[in-house]
Design a protein around this nucleic acid. Structure first.
Lengths: 139, 139
DNA sequence: CCTTGACCTTCCAGTAAGTGGAACCCCTAT
DNA sequence: ATAGGGGTTCCACTTACTGGAAGGTCAAGG
């Protein structure tokens, strides 16, 4: 199968598939004319990668997951560990974003958004840590 | 003031400060010996940048916010628009991560995490869109 | 006077995961 | 013969830094 068909079936852009070959995630054969020739197993692998990437796994995680997937002697504990670590990273990221969101929403709420220059958003950004520390100490 | 002091006061690594000069966010003077010489205004600007970055604003957003900050004829509407767009991006990112998290948590939960090879996580990743479509059609 | 150590300088390379584009080859249909 | 729609390689660019090498500057101590 040529790369265009594989792209359609796997849902990945042809560019991405070439990139995945570059970094050794898939190893398609080559036809006489130099075109990549993908077997069903390659397409399956690429779909696997697409799904793992959609769940936010890093390429390195994907590489390891793929290795486990193809290893009959794997243990589910190994897979679960990768997934749990990733879950932890997601949770930390969500927490970080949620905190940003809260601060930002508060500031946006306080901003009139009119023609005047006064702006609590800029006022907050201009507040240095020193000033915050001073305010905390005195308040 | 030398870069080390500025780094300490602004909370930004010296490397980052040099990078910010590189991309034109700050323009410190130079001493006779070639060292960067920061004025109070530069330190203030860097603290502003650090705070904006901590809220997740992109460098380009920071550039624009800084411009508005220094523009007496700004309107708070301009600032608010940047902040609202950023808030939207944060919300979309949180939604994306939350969805990933739900799927992943479900899979992790279903995985025994023992010595056996059977693993619902891998099974899910190996599920192609075709198979999902087929399952949806038949189910 | 020399050295040591903590500063500072520039420049180059690498990170994650692709994406865009140029220049060029291949195959089929008209 | 040529037009189109594939495919190929290679290089550059993206974000926001970070690490490291090679070397200049300065104050203190022996």
């Amino acid at each position: 199968m040529n790369i265009g068909d594989v792209a359609e079936r796997s849902g990945l852009p042809a560019k991405t598939i070439r990139y995945y070959e570059d970094i050794g995630l898939v190893k398609p054969l080559r036809s006489a004319n130099g075109y990549r020739s993908f077997r069903n197993g390659d397409v399956h692998k690429l779909a696997f990668l697409g799904r793992a990437r959609a769940l936010g796994f890093s390429i390195e995680d994907c590489r390891n997951l793929l290795k486990l997937y193809e290893d009959d002697h794997r243990t589910s504990a190994e897979v679960k560990q990768i997934a749990e670590e990733h879950l932890g990273r997601i949770d930390r990221k969500i927490a970080e974003l949620t905190e940003m969101r809260a601060t930002l929403a508060h500031l946006v709420d306080a901003c009139a958004g009119d023609h005047r220059p006064d702006c609590p958003i800029l006022a907050d950004l201009a507040t240095t840590q020193e000033e915050i520390a001073r305010a905390n100490k005195s308040g």
